[in-house]
Write a protein that binds this DNA or RNA. Structure first.
Length: 116
DNA sequence: CTTTTGACTTATT
DNA sequence: AAATAAGCCAAAA
């Protein structure tokens, strides 16, 4: 690991830093995090799969359909419960409405100081 | 070094 | 609305 990765910090830590900033009761999509981290959505998925730090709210990252990408067998049930515990509601088909719960895209919740 | 492996997304049937 | 295909590319083996 030479001098190359100076400005180019490793991707996973960069992703984790962003995920940590998702507030309780909000969710973000893999693609949204990817966009902010400057990588692909899949990589965000890989990063979530590799999370070891319990301080990272990995459960707040879901797919672009508003659904949980983790299989029910693999821990999806846990993720859903964690989100329910944060007050996030799922619709009939098990989807979260980004317009309501999306980080930075929530229509509800306090509006950010829009200083033109 | 090469190969495999995916907690995705988007466009296209 | 649901299934498929292609693009994506960093880690881990």
């Amino acid at each position: 690991v030479a001098e190359s990765v100076k400005t180019d910090l490793h991707l996973f830590p960069r992703i984790y830093a962003l995920v940590r900033q998702i507030p309780t009761g909000r969710v973000a999509s893999y693609g949204q995090i990817a966009s902010l981290a400057g990588c692909t959505a899949r990589e965000v998925g890989y990063a979530m799969a590799a999370v070891k730090d319990p301080d990272i709210p990995w459960q707040r990252v879901i797919n672009s359909q508003g659904k949980i990408s983790l299989g029910e067998q693999s821990g999806g049930a846990l993720q859903r419960q964690l989100l329910l515990d944060e007050g996030i509601q799922f619709d009939d088909r098990g989807r979260v409405n980004f317009k309501v719960y999306g980080w930075l895209s929530a229509a509800s919740e306090d509006i950010q100081p829009t200083l033109f």
